[in-house]
């Protein structure tokens, strides 16, 4: 039983029960909350945060943090929009470049943390600001928009957001990405080393493992996820505005923490992260369904995050007590 608690199983259970309770609450009180339209919205508004949060889970388990998620996603989407609208690149090529750019910035984050020994908080704060500025510079501070459903490239929306008859296709991509990252984190050397580094970096280093390599890889995975997330953001919202996007990383990090991943590193799960993403998404749509204004969503998400971290702190205390015995 202690093993379960230590590995975050208990919190996953808490988070999952919370998700069910919140869902049931809105199902009974909200307007049309159980309708297919609302269900689609819950799934659709979780796409991009979902990709960001899955990638961020790797970084946080490794004992780091990535504050550049939101700004990087927007910078990557702005680059795509600029190349598509102004340089006339084909859309598929823009998407490839968006993913490559974000992955490259992820690599930069990783190298700054491992080679330059910058604290992750500062390194990624720097890239966050850099991305905000870069997005504005390359677009000349004008907003960029991706193809609308009325344009020939409308397949973009029909492929990555939802199909013409309303199937939330993005949810399937997110599920597929979840399965892939789940395997990487739980079934491969990459995942094992990232967990180990988060638990005790020094011990891993002393046992001759290339800590820098695996740690950098965590940031690269995060960057890659952001790049993919930017495609889904663009397909869902079409318009991308320069100098926005900071704050989205906090939603992603909140989802990770709600899902039981410890900010201290070494403990965490992608299943939990997905639960966290859906808790935020259900809250977002649920509060509107009971006619509460937008600021309440931010407020209640804050409460949920505090609750989740409280459990995390409590669990760490329990775990250290066990160790002392």
């Amino acid at each position: 039983m202690f093993k379960l608690i230590k590995k975050g199983g208990m919190q996953k259970l808490f988070a999952f029960s919370a998700l069910i309770l919140i869902y049931l609450f809105f199902a009974f009180t909200g307007k049309n909350f159980t309708s297919s339209a609302t269900t689609l919205n819950i799934l659709a508004s979780s796409y991009y945060v979902g990709f960001l949060a899955l990638g961020a889970t790797f970084v946080i388990i490794s004992g780091g943090i990535d504050l550049s998620l939101g700004a990087l996603m927007m910078a990557s989407a702005l680059i795509g929009g600029e190349l598509y609208r102004d340089a006339g690149f084909p859309l598929w090529l823009c998407m490839v470049i968006m993913v490559l750019f974000a992955t490259f910035v992820g690599l930069l984050n990783g190298l700054m943390v491992t080679k330059l020994k910058l604290p992750p908080f500062i390194a990624t704060l720097g890239t966050m600001m850099g991305c905000l500025g870069f997005g504005s510079i390359i677009t000349g501070t004008s907003s960029k928009y991706f193809p609308t459903i009325l344009e020939p490239d409308g397949w973009f929306i029909r492929t990555f957001f939802k199909s013409a008859n309303g199937v939330p296709l993005g949810a399937f991509y997110l599920l597929a990405f979840f399965i892939i990252t789940f395997i990487i984190l739980n079934k491969t050397k990459i995942g094992r080393y990232i967990f180990a580094i988060g638990n005790n970096e020094e011990a891993v280093r002393l046992s001759g493992i290339k800590v820098d390599l695996w740690k950098t890889l965590a940031y690269v995975i995060s960057g890659l996820s952001v790049g993919i997330g930017s495609i889904f953001y663009a397909a869902t919202y079409i318009v991308v505005i320069p100098n926005t996007g900071n704050g989205i990383e906090l939603q992603a990090i909140a989802a990770v923490v709600i899902g039981g991943t410890s900010l201290a590193g070494g403990i965490g799960s992608l299943t939990g992260t997905m639960i966290g993403v859906f808790i935020m998404s259900v809250l977002k749509n649920g509060l509107i369904s009971i006619n509460l204004p937008a600021p309440y969503q931010v407020f209640f998400t804050g409460l949920v995050v505090i609750g989740a971290v409280l459990i995390d702190v409590y669990r760490n205390k329990r775990a250290s007590k066990v160790k002392l015995k």
């Binding site: 339209a37 919205n41 919202y237 509107i288 937008a294």
Partner: peptide
């Protein structure tokens, strides 16, 4: 009536989410 709006005039994604949620409420 239910009067709502995003936190600022650059919060396009928030407004789109709101519109989606309102459409779902018929």
């Amino acid at each position: 009536i239910y009067f709502t709006g995003p936190e600022g005039e650059s919060a396009i994604s928030t407004q789109v989410d709101m519109l989606n949620a309102e459409l779902a409420k018929d």
